[in-house]
Write a protein that binds this DNA or RNA. Structure first.
Lengths: 122, 122, 122, 122
DNA sequence: GTGGTCTAGACCACC
DNA sequence: GTGGTCTAGACCACT
């Protein structure tokens, strides 16, 4: 995982987003035990408090669960994980398109821009 | 213009983005005189200082120009305005796609999501 | 005269400086009649009030004199004009060197920078 | 640092220039932590907001970096700092010489004035 | 009447 | 405790 943060958003949110991402894309598998807060914190080079907050954020969404005295585990509710991914796709797509339409681009232009980006990395 | 702000980002940035948008999409035309800081502030329901900061932000990008003792004007550099729009489209598209790929969606899924959204409002 | 103004200083001061300059360097000769405020204003593309203020500024230093019902004339006090030039040279040199020393450049570096600039246009 | 401000320029610009100067001349070293906004503000006898604006100005040029919740640090990019110094020297020299030539002084006169000033403090 | 600057003081997010 | 944002209100320079 590449832990480089931008300065315009809270670090803990960026961490939460990245870990969530890793769960959704399967890098951390359902039911798998996660590193400790301290390990995560060292790895990311942030204060343990910050990491704690990020994990609490994810837990609150149900993606991870804390077993006291044991550690944190990815949920084994595969449906929830998939749901989370779909939600993000849907939400991000909606925001993206709305913003571009507001800028005055028409549907064809947006479609073309997406197309170009998707194929250029080929 | 709809001046409703979300709480998770600085208001002055949201204002700057909205006014920039209005310039890019042609709502404010090149060379046109803008409302005064105070008018804008009242309209948006914010403090004149906040509005001033937003406008300074836009000016710093070259989209508007200040004539002291007179008022603020949209730049008449049409190229710059178009450029700004293209930049935003390109940047937003890149971020959107990168984020979705990171979530584990493949190109087909992304394309389909965009397609669906674009045609559904039809 | 090239009337292009920077935005970070009052326009009337920039105008005053330019006209003063033209008197010091002999472009307007001692005793010569100057254009009217209105002519000057049109030429420079500014409000007559602004030009008026600039000329008042110069007059207050004694470089020009107003003869009511007639017009404005450059002073015929050649000594004063020369003095004004020397003052500016001295003042500007002092400010320039003080600022550069404060930035940490030593005398040799400053001298070299001046030398280079003076000879490069050759 | 001597915090005495002239009235003809915005205070925040004067502050920014002075702090920039202190970074360029090595008074604040690369990577060093700067005083807090409030400390700086008290020291200079200005409102914290004014100081904040000055620091934001410097940050925008890349000379300092903000670590949120922690403090501000001088950049450790020594090249950038040196560059900034050179830029200022070059810019100031150019402006100085251009202005003096416009006043009608020839190269020899300018050179002599600089020379005199540089050696007189000896 | 325009924009620009400054002060004072409050509140919040973040580490 | 750190920086960031916002409000309120005043004053000034400029056109």
């Amino acid at each position: 995982m590449n832990w480089n943060f931008s300065e315009d958003r809270p670090i803990f949110l960026q961490i939460a987003a990245q870990i969530t991402q890793s769960i959704v894309n399967g890098q951390y598998r359902p039911g798998e035990k996660l590193p400790t807060v301290r390990e995560f914190a060292i790895q990311a080079g942030v204060n343990p408090n910050t990491m704690q907050r990020a994990l609490a954020d994810i837990e609150q969404k149900g993606l991870i669960q804390t077993r006291r005295g044991d550690g944190r585990y990815v949920t084994d509710d595969i449906g929830l994980i998939k749901q989370m991914g779909s939600d993000r796709l849907s939400l991000a797509t909606g925001e993206f398109i709305t913003a571009m339409l507001a800028l005055g681009f028409d549907k064809a232009a947006i479609q073309k821009a997406v197309q170009t980006r998707l194929t250029e990395g080929k």
